[in-house]
Write a protein that binds this DNA or RNA. Structure first.
Lengths: 133, 133, 133, 133
DNA sequence: GTGGTCTAGACCACG
DNA sequence: GTGGTCTAGACCACC
C-alpha cells in the first residue's frame, strides 16, 4: 500500500487518498477483510497529517468501502471490490463526460476529440514505458 | 452570447465564463471589436454574481482577449481571434490530459478509455440532435 | 436557529448539531432554500470550534439536507423536509428498537416495558410543564 | 451463558457483556456461587477480544456482582441476585429515558412514541415466536 | 463575506 | 496499539 500524494495538485489530499485506496481495491492490491494501514502509519508513509488520513478513511466508511473494527483498525468490506470497480470507471467517465460536453457545446468536431485522445494516450504510453525502464 | 453555467461543476464559475468567451471568439460567434455584454447584463442573463463576471472579464483582459474602451465597455481585441483559435484545442486537451493521466495511473486499459470516449460522444450526439429537433 | 449543545453528553458535538438541524427542518423552523447560519456564526452561537461545525455541515451535505452555494453559504435543499421528517422518526425508532431488543432478550415483560415508557412520558411531561412556567 | 454481542451497536462490547451477565443473574440463569466462564472461554464463545472480557469481569467485580475465587475463577456473589434484580428495570429505564428525552426535546408527540413502542414490541414478539418454532 | 482544506497537538474509549 | 473527537489557528478559492 504505497501512495503517491501530490499536495499541490488541486485535488485535495484526502481525496487523493480516497481514490487511491479505491483503485487499490479495484486492482486487487488490497484484498477483502485486509486491514488498511493504521491512521498513524498511513500519515507517516504519506507524509500528511493524521487528521487528513482520518478524513479520507471516514469518507471510505461512508461509501461502504471500509468498516471499522473496534480497537483493531479498518478493514475492507466484502462489497468493496464490486463497488470500487464500478466507481473506478464512473469517476473517469464523469470527468470525461464533462470535458466532452464542453467540447460539444463549443463546436469542436468529434474527430478532433478522438485525435486529442489518441495523442494523450500516446503521450502517456511513452511516459509509462520510460518509468518502467 | 448565451452561457451554460453549471455551478456544481468543480470548475469555478468565473473560469467557465472565461473559457466560453474564448470559445465564442474562436468560433466567430464574437467578432473583433464587438462588445461583450456589460457586467450587469451578463450577470443577469447567466444568473451569476456580478463580482464573478468582473473577475472573468479581468482575466480576459489580462490575457489580451478583451480591452476596455472608456465609457462604452469591453471589446474583443484584434489579436483575440488568433489567440483563441490557437488555444481552442489546448483548453480541451489540458482537461483531457488530466483525466487520461489519472486513468493511466490506475491501470485502466487504453481500449477501455477509447470505449468510454466513444460512449460519451454517442451520448452527446444524441443530445444535440434532440435539441435541434 | 438556537442550538442546545451539551459537550459532556456522550453524543459527539457535531452529531448534536446534525440532529438539531434535521429536527429544525422537520419542524419547519428552517425552511427550504433558507440559509443555515454561517460556519463562523454557528460556531460563535454554539460556543464550539468552527471545525466542528464544518464537520456537521459536511455530514448534512452528504445526507442531501444542505447544499453549498459557492461563496454564499449553505442552503436547505428542496428534499430536506421530507428526508428530515422521515429521519426524525427513524432515529428514535432505531434507538427504541435497540432498547426493546435488549429487554426482550432478557425476558422483561412487555407490560413492564409499557409501564416504564408511561413513567418516562409522565416524567418528561412534568419537566416540560415546569420549564414553560 | 450465551451472549448476544453486536459490535456495531454503539454500546461498548464490555458493557454489553456486563449488562447481559447482570440480566442472567436477575433471571436466575446464573446462580449464586456458580462460576462464570473463564476469560478465555467467554472470549472464544462470544468471539470477543479476551481483554474486553477481562474489563467486563473487572467491572462486575467492582459492582460486587462477581468475586474472584483464588485459582478457580470468578463466582457469583451472594448479594448479586438481589442487586441484579433491583437494577434490572433500571438498566432498561435508563436507556429508555434518554430516547424519550430526545424525542421530547424535538416535539415528537407522546402518542407517536407510544405507537413506535407498540410497533417494536409487535416486531420483537414475532421474532421471538419465529425463533421458538 | 462564504465554505473548504490542512496542520498540529490534545484527549478519549476501546481491545 | 487502534480509531474518534475536538480545539486552535492558518491558508485558500470563490462570490
Amino acid at each position: 500500500m504505497i501512495l503517491h500524494i501530490d499536495p499541490s495538485n488541486g485535488i485535495p489530499i484526502y481525496e487523493q487518498i480516497v481514490r487511491q485506496v479505491k483503485f487499490a481495491i479495484a486492482n486487487g492490491a488490497l484484498q477483502v477483510a485486509e486491514h488498511v494501514p493504521s491512521v498513524r502509519d498511513m500519515a507517516r508513509i504519506s507524509a500528511v497529517n493524521p487528521n487528513t488520513v482520518v478524513r479520507a478513511y471516514r469518507e471510505l466508511q461512508n461509501d461502504g468501502i471500509l468498516k471499522s473494527i473496534r480497537g483493531t483498525g479498518l478493514a475492507v468490506t466484502a462489497e468493496a471490490p464490486t463497488l470500487c470497480r464500478r466507481i473506478r470507471l464512473e469517476m473517469i467517465q464523469q470527468r470525461l463526460r464533462s470535458v466532452i460536453e464542453e467540447a460539444a457545446q463549443n463546436q469542436v468536431d468529434w474527430d478532433e476529440i478522438r485525435q486529442l485522445v489518441e495523442r494523450e494516450i500516446q503521450h502517456q504510453s511513452e511516459r509509462s514505458r520510460e518509468s518502467k525502464s
